[in-house]
Amino acid sequence: MPDLALDTLTADSLRAWLVDCVATHLDRPAEAVDTTAKLSDYGLDSLHVLAIAAELEDHLDISLDPTVMWDNPTLDSLSVALVRELSQNA
């Protein structure tokens, strides 16, 4: 997985990290993950999404509000929302 750090975080770097993470969970290549598709379209339900959130939290040492993920069902919208949320909390 690409390296990710809180102080240099951008929507792009976060999206790339999330794509890799989702690809690992789905056991398929990163190229096959569409960042405009809803995660639920891949069969990733709320439990999977929580697991992905937990990895991101572990990685960045942060705690996320799960409703951010509920309200941003695609990787594109999620990475933008997360960067906004994290910059507000910083």
């Binding site: 639920s40 339900d45 709320s46 409703t67 509920w70 069902p73």
Partner: peptide
């Protein structure tokens, strides 16, 4: 259920 697709929202 208020959205056929269900999910947490």
């Amino acid at each position: 259920r208020t959205d056929d697709a269900g999910g947490p929202r």
